[in-house]
Amino acid sequence: MNQSFVLPNSGHTFDPKSSKLGMWLFLYTEILLFGGLFLVYMVYRSLNPDAFLLASFKLNVWMGTVNTIILLTSSMTVAMSITALQKGDKKMAMNLLWLTLLAALAFLVIKYFEWGAKFEHGYFPGMDHYDAMPVGEKLYFYLYFFMTGLHGLHVIVGGIFIWVVIAKIKSGKVHKDRISLHENAGLYWHLVDLIWIYLFPLFYLIH
């Protein structure tokens, strides 16, 4: 018997390139998931241009802008933390990841207040104000809640991902020479950021 023999191309040995390739492929699926929603948005915006415009005035551009800045900054900190770990500065890498997490939290808190205000006005599907809206505005708010909600979910997942990476850096499982989990968390976080970069103008800015 030859139990100790291991193939050079074994699926059981860790391969950073595989792990990164897998992450990229997964990101494609995420983009397509949102792609379906962007398509729906595009169709209904072109069918109801005026209603979408009117409805968009009901959003708070300031809160959206602040959130955009926060998210962009957090993308920077996560990229910096990867560089820090590549250079072997474990402490700095962890601190930068904590900063990223803080930004994620800030984003969600602002989102909470933003959504809360919409609920108070009764814009959520099924509430009084919503039911009285014309069809186009209904669709706008439906898509607003669906898309920013799904994005918010991704912020939470991304936050958990980063938190796991912090824990693993601390315990020494992720380090300079085995950094792909950290890089993957970074990639995922950039995706969360990227999607927001499209959501923000589509809902808040276009006139």
């Binding site: 191309n9 074994s10 699926g11 059981h12």
Partner: peptide, 12 residues
């Protein structure tokens, strides 16, 4: 994996 001459898929 057998066709490729390896022992498993990339992510078991």
């Amino acid at each position: 994996p057998l066709h490729l001459g390896t022992d498993d898929v990339a992510f078991p």
